[in-house]
């Protein structure tokens, strides 16, 4: 379970990217995070894995408040949170397997020697993850020769290889052909159902959210303005969520 209490993030220029956000996300949830660009979706996800330091508030993940973590404890927490980036963030000159193995890096010292970093267990987990995203036959292929959709699947496999307690995806389909969205969302949903790991996705296309997600969180100028089962996301509510932001533009 994730409990976010009074979460606020102020940037140095005074912008409130997140303004007193309160939300509880049960285990195994599949959540669409919606709102206009700049509404705070991305900052919200990045606070959850602490790529962004919250200004105030608490974030309880599995009973542990991760907001004040630093140093070694923060590293140990981060490795248990999978993150899928919009731009994949893969090393395109390396093979699929090498990239997915990076998901295991948090389990080793950053200063390990030049040989033999990964264990047999790491390889097994990486190969499992690659199988899960259906790329087993591409294991040794260089990522640069894969299509965009395949590259995002590699990135998802890398996050899965982390063996995360929480999976975050920041607009994972935004740089892909729209037709590939079903593949990506289907993979994440399948993983969510099989392992019971909560998944939060920043999503632009509401139609996708409706088809795949259980619940939604709607942000508008840093505030959580609506949340609940995806079925409650009526077109009236939708207009409300987006209209307020449009006025502000």
């Amino acid at each position: 379970m994730i409990e976010v209490r009074n979460l606020t993030k102020a940037f140095p220029d005074g912008t409130l990217a997140l303004n007193d956000v309160n939300v509880t996300i049960p285990d195994g949830d599949f959540v669409a995070v919606i709102g206009l660009s700049g509404a705070g979706k991305s900052t919200f996800l990045r606070c959850l894995n602490r790529l962004v330091d919250p200004t105030s508030g608490s974030i309880l993940v599995g009973g542990q408040d991760v907001a004040p973590l630093s140093g070694r404890k923060l590293q140990l927490y981060r490795r248990t949170v999978g993150f899928v980036f919009q731009q994949f963030n893969l090393v395109t000159r390396l093979s699929v397997l090498d990239n997915v193995l990076h998901g295991r890096l948090g389990y080793h010292s950053t200063f390990s020697g030049m040989l033999g970093l990964y264990t047999e267990d790491d390889y097994a987990r990486a190969r499992d993850a690659i199988r899960l995203v259906g790329l087993s036959e591409k294991e040794d292929t260089r990522v640069s020769s894969l299509s965009g959709g395949q590259q995002q699947r590699v990135a998802i496999a890398r996050a899965i290889a982390q063996d995360p307690q929480l999976m975050l995806a920041d607009e994972p389909m935004a740089s892909l052909d729209p037709r590939l969205s079903d593949v990506i969302l289907g993979l994440l949903r399948g993983y969510n159902e099989e392992k019971g790991v909560s998944v939060l996705i920043n999503i632009h296309v509401l139609e996708h959210a409706r088809r795949y997600c259980k619940n939604f969180l709607a942000f508008n100028r840093g505030r959580l303005v609506a949340s609940g089962p995806i079925a409650d996301l009526t077109s009236e509510l939708e207009t409300e969520i987006y209209a307020g932001s449009l006025d502000a533009l």
Binding site: N49, Y77, R78, R79, F83, F85, N89, L105, G106, Q162
Partner: peptide, 8 residues
């Protein structure tokens, strides 16, 4: 981002 996010 990624290196930090992976816990290194």
């Amino acid at each position: 981002d990624l290196a930090t996010g992976l816990g290194t």
